[in-house]
Every structure is written in structure tokens, then in C-alpha cells.
Design a protein around this nucleic acid. Structure first.
Lengths: 341, 341
DNA sequence: TTGTAGGCGTTATCAT
DNA sequence: ATGATAACGCCTACAA
């Protein structure tokens, strides 16, 4: 296993200086045609390839960006990372991968690892536990820009991409109303989640638009566990006036909810119809697919986040003093109706 | 944005040499207690952190390993990468991520990117198209070891981890026989796939064990598309003697097959029972879950692959001449029965 | 057109 | 106990 050829090696063999070799290889203008050819010739023979690590080290760049997400097993995030990857490849960037498993501690460790590796930038979707941002602020010292997506922080001085679920929920409610449904129930996620707050606000405003007052008896929450969802369903099914439609927090909740309903002799999607927020690719194969979904465009969120990051990095290169600009990209969610009602 | 403190900076401030600082920081034995403390004190004050990039560059190491998989959206692979990650973290390694999307060309590009980044090692599950290995052989020149998992190459001179589906299929067939099923059909994947060959051999040997001859009319293949699977099902359902059980290549095929069966008025899992090879996490939510599955342990495959890679890297460090050893880890698949029959 | 030298941040090998 | 220096691979002013 002999070591890899370096410009130095080539220089020695050709009795020229390393700088000559360097220049010949990079097609520097002022270089003798003869030497240039001899150098390039030998380089090819030896199978020379520049040591990018050395170059990056010198340039203080790595051409690597870090990506930290809660769970890669969630289809939403695997799509997002694919979007990031596709944009990254275009810019000749590679992705350093890390999961937080929705734990702050793991997130901190992942961020630290990225820092150690001196990534040129970081794209992250925050863990559910993340309530402070020291670990991310620390990156500023290293001049590592951070772009958040989907699970974005509350701070305004940050770059972010997300899907506005407030609007999405309003749209979903509107769609139900337009199709004649009135008594619309809602199983929301945990109160403290930003995603829950957005949806709730959307639900309330959406319903308010169409009827005088919102009946909060129709709003339940689940901790996202099967049991939590079943408890919510139990309450809803116990109401004097059964809901005509149920909006669930996401597809997982949807599945537990419909399963429970079916067990309790509800004709799912006939007696009560179910709609959801899309995060599962294969709902069409499930026993009770939702009749409509709000698509949150994870792939595009990923792409967009990477694009923003690249813009930031480009700005840095060109020394353009960034005037404390913070990029925010708000993607419009889109309603997908699986069936005409 | 002032630049980060370096040992040089500390040296200047303290009027000592860089080597002294370096030693003080690394707790070198022969160093004055006073200076050591002063150095460490100032380092803390300045928030000094060693530049790992510089260290890695010098050591010709990156503490990064590359991982290339076909599709992260497939649950199998997202589990595998999680296994790899967990083992990697223990060894203070980070993961450079890439997908091949089952295309050779993309795989080549991904490998090239990993090479450029000088990963310390590579873990890869091959694309379906991969029939030559130049791009991977090329890594030898860079002394980058490769460990394959799940989709492993035919060459014997390679490190690999996989699940022996030959045995798994035999087990599955045996389980069906033990439960009284005789007429067992099989919808296999594309012939050229190693995974298909293994399963087929297992099917044949499994059936042979229990009855005199194998009826090849019961064996169909699908290109894994919905249409392909439906064509296979059509043939099986058209047989004079309907099969009592159908083994499908994987959960996706299973879903298409059962959906088709249901549409054609077959009482799924009663009239004909269906079993499969597990690669979907949520089959329990599907309309027609398989009654049994062969679990292929993606997480453990990932962990194991990383373990092997670490062993190789450790060996390299200790200069132990590796005696052309190739690590092979064959995990036993396990049968999971979802229902007592 | 080409060579020399310095530097990126760190460690290791000599000296002192 | 500490300092000077070289080296990792490459690039780039500056010099010739």
C-alpha cells in the first residue's frame, strides 16, 4: 500500500518546484506549455488526485454541511433529507448525518460533533425537547450558519423554512364545510408543541369563519400514543351529538383513531369521515385511509433549506456584509383530496 | 466575528512556545505545573477548542465514515443507518450520508464524494444495478476499507454483513407446513436479484423437505411494481387448484397482492393466508397484515457493519498486518408470527 | 515562465 | 521543563 502521489512527488520526479506543479495542474495562465503537459501527463500516469482535505484545511472549508433531524424513520424526515441531499449534490456538498431522537441531550451531542467536524453549515429540525439554544448559538463563534426547517425555533433572528399549518388547517376546515360537514371534531397533538398551536389556531379561525361559535367539546388532544388517541376518541364518540368529521393531528393519530372507531362500530369515512395531516407515504394501503390530507412538502422544505444555506455561504465568500438578514421561507401546504365526496 | 483562538495565540499571550502550550493542553508529563495551569486557565478563558480538522489532517484521519444506501425512505435502510449511527457514536465517529436510489451512476458519484472527503471507511448496501465494482475497488488505493451490508457483492474478498434469507425462507415454509398448509405459492422478486435467488432456493428446499416435488406453477415473479404483482396474483388465482398460502417477496408486494386478492373476492388470510418478509414498520395498520414475517434485523446489520469497520480500522492503527482476513457476519433471520393459526 | 517561502493548526522530534 | 523546527498537502504572494 504505497502512499498516494502528491504534487511534491510529481515535482521531484520532474525536477521542478511544487508551485510549478500546482500551477500546471490548475491551468494557471503563465506556465510553459511544455511543462504543463509534462506535469499533467505524469499526474495522470500516477493517478494523482488532489487531497481535498488539505485544500479544505487551508481554505478553512469542508464542503460538508451537517443535518440533524429527530427521526430518520419518519417518512417526513427521510424525504426532507433527500431534498437536502439533492440540493447539496448540485453544490458539490456532502451531508454529515445525525439524529436527535427528539432528545435535547442527543441533539446537543450531535451539534457538538458537527462543530468538531467543522461543517460549513447546519440544517436542523429541532427536537421536541429543545427549549434553549445555547448549543446552536455556540456555532456562531465558529461562523457556522444554521438553517432550521419544519421544527423551527421561536427566535426571529434565525433562518428558517416551514410549512404554515395554520393556513393548512383553515383550508382543511373550509374543505369540510364546502362539502357539507358541520360538526367537525379535532384531535390535536400536545399543547406545548408549536405544531399543535398552529393547528388549533387554524381550526378555531377556520370554524369561526363558517359558524358563529366554536364548540370546544369537539377539540381533544392526544400525547400521540395509541392510548392517548383512544382516550380522545372515546370522548368524542361519547358526545351527545356525534361529530360528522374528525381532523387528526397526523397520519399516525389517524390510524389509531380510525382503528378505534372501527372497533366501536363506526362506519369509518361514512358515518364519520376522517381527514389528516400527511406524514405517511402509504396511507392508501391502510385499512382506513383519510379522505383528505394536508401535504407538508418535506422534500421541498429540505431543498429550500439547503438553498438558503448555500446563499448564506456564497454571501460569506463574497464578503458582502450580510446586513443581519434572516431568510424565512414559508411554504404553503396543499390540500389533497383522495376522494370526491 | 474574530477568529478562533489557537495554541499559537495562547503561546503569544503567555510568552511561551506553541509546543509548550500543546503539551500543557494534552497533560504531557514533563511540563511545569505552573505553566500548565496558566495555559489551561487561559485556554478556558478564551474558549479554546482544538481544531480537529487540523489534527485529522495531520493524522490523515477524518473520524468520518461514509454510508451509502439505496433509499433512505425504505424503513429497512433508515433502521440500518440508525444502527450504524449508534455504533458510530460510541466510537466517536460521524456519518457522511449518501443515497444511490438504486442507480449505479449515482452510487459511483456518491462513492467518489466519499473518497474526496477522505472518509476513514465506507459502509454500503449496493444498488440493484451494481454489477461491477471498479468504483469500490478504487478505494483500496486510498486505503479506505469497505464493509457491505444486506445487498452484498458476490466477491469473497470483501467484508460483509447480511441476513441469510435462504434459511429464513425455509423456516417460513416449514412454519406453514407445520400449521397444515400444503399448497404454498410464492411471489418472488426479479430473478437477477441475489435476494430473489436466495429466497427461491429456500422455497424449493423448504418445500422439498416436506413433499416430494415442487410445483413451479406456484412460483411467480414480480418486478416489484403494483402491476407486476397483480399479474403474478392473476396467474396464481387462475390456477385450477388455488393456493392455500402465498409467500410474498416483501411487505410492499404483500400489500399489492392482498389488495388485489380482496378486490377479487378472496377472503384474505382466511381463504388464502399471506406471509411476507418484513420491511415495513406499520403492517399492523394495513388493511391486510401478513400472518407471519421474516425479520431481517436492519438495525443489527447496521451496528454489526460498523463494528466490523471499527475492528478493521483498529487493526490498521496497530499496524497488525491484516492477513487478508475478510469479515463475514451472517445474521439469522427470525420468524415472527402475528397470529396463532 | 518558474522558484522560494510562508502559512493553515497541530504534534512530534530534536535540542537546550 | 521548555523551545525551535519540521512535517502533513496545498496554495499563493513575492522574487527572480
Amino acid at each position: 500500500m504505497d502512499k498516494l502521489p502528491t504534487i511534491k512527488e510529481i515535482a521531484v520526479r520532474l525536477n521542478v518546484s511544487v508551485s510549478t506543479v500546482s500551477r500546471a495542474l490548475s491551468n494557471h495562465p503563465r506556465i510553459g506549455l511544455g511543462t504543463k503537459q509534462r506535469v499533467q501527463q505524469l499526474a495522470k500516469e500516477l493517478g494523482y488526485e488532489p487531497n481535498t482535505q488539505a485544500i479544505f484545511f487551508k481554505q478553512k472549508k469542508t464542503h460538508v454541511i451537517g443535518v440533524i433531524i429527530p427521526y430518520i424513520r419518519e417518512d417526513f424526515f427521510s424525504q426532507a433529507i433527500s431534498g437536502i441531499e439533492s440540493a447539496a449534490i448540485e453544490h458539490e456538498y456532502t451531508i454529515l448525518f445525525g439524529q436527535s431522537y427528539d432528545e435535547l441531550e442527543r441533539e446537543i451531542k450531535a451539534v457538538s460533533a458537527m462543530k468538531k467536524q467543522r461543517v460549513d453549515g447546519l440544517i436542523i429540525s429541532l427536537s421536541k425537547e429543545t427549549n434553549k439554544y445555547n448549543h446552536l448559538e455556540a456555532l456562531k463563534k465558529y461562523d457556522i450558519p444554521v438553517v432550521y426547517f419544519d421544527r423551527v425555533p421561536t427566535m426571529t433572528d434565525s433562518h428558517k423554512v416551514f410549512c404554515n399549518l395554520y393556513k393548512g388547517t383553515i383550508e382543511l376546515v373550509g374543505w369540510l364545510f364546502n362539502n357539507g360537514y358541520r360538526n367537525i371534531a379535532f384531535i390535536n397533538g400536545p399543547d406545548k408543541l408549536r405544531a399543535s398551536k398552529e393547528r388549533l389556531k387554524g381550526y378555531i379561525d377556520g370554524v369561526s369563519k363558517h359558524q358563529l361559535k366554536v364548540d370546544m367539546q369537539l377539540v381533544e388532544t392526544t400525547d400521540l400514543s395509541k392510548e392517548g388517541t383512544e382516550m380522545a376518541m372515546k370522548k368524542l364518540l361519547g358526545l351527545k351529538k356525534l361529530p360528522q368529521a374528525i381532523i387528526t393531528f397526523n397520519d399516525y393519530v389517524h390510524m389509531d383513531a380510525t382503528q378505534y372507531a372501527a372497533r366501536n362500530n363506526i362506519a369509518v369515512n361514512k358515518h364519520i369521515i376522517f381527514v389528516s395531516f400527511a406524514n405517511l407515504p402509504i396511507t392508501s394501503y391502510t385499512a382506513f385511509p383519510p379522505l383528505a390530507s394536508i401535504e407538508q412538502h418535506p422534500y421541498r422544505q429540505g431543498e429550500k433549506a439547503m438553498d438558503i444555506l448555500m446563499t448564506i455561504l456564497k454571501n460569506k465568500e463574497t464578503q458582502e456584509v450580510l446586513p443581519n438578514t434572516y431568510y424565512t421561507e414559508e411554504l404553503a401546504p396543499s390540500l389533497v383530496a383522495y376522494k370526491q365526496l
